[in-house]
Amino acid sequence: MEIDRPLPNPMTPEAKPYWDGLREQKLMLPKCGACGHVFWYPRVACPRCHARSIGWIQSKGRGTLHAFEIGYQSFNKAFKVPTPYVLAMVELAEGPRMLSNLINVEADPRKLTCDMPVEVVFSKLTDEVTLPLFQPAGR
């Protein structure tokens, strides 16, 4: 199948457990071993208490649509997902927010509302890269 999106580049060493987890259909999040803060994106020190003991937890993959947009054109030659598509900021139940796409939904602003419940869907692009996309919860 043709890859319809830009592959993540670069894939940083700090994010290796995240990309490794996705290959096994697990959404992994960094968690501070000192203060317990679950955060996004991966980094070497906790952004709250600055401890360096960063561990990882598996997210339940549920959250809410914090904000959204509908793309009526592609802004990158390598992004070939058919228009219109939904650009999403998801707030995970564990706390962090991440950017993704909302799929399996009509890309119509009248059908979408901020704070609607969403759940993760794993989308394998290559043997190395699986992306976490989201869909309305309970589909």
Binding site: R5, P6, L7, P8, N9, P10, M11, T12, A15, Y41, H66, A67, F68, E69, G71, S74, F75, N76, F79, V81, Y85, L87, A88, M89, M98, L99, S100, N101, C114, L131, L133
Partner: peptide, 23 residues
Amino acid sequence: PGQFEAPYGFGPAPTMFGLITTR
């Protein structure tokens, strides 16, 4: 951005400021 934003179609400013706006 290359790792956590571009794969979903995010890039130029309109694909970001719209999130602020819908919220």
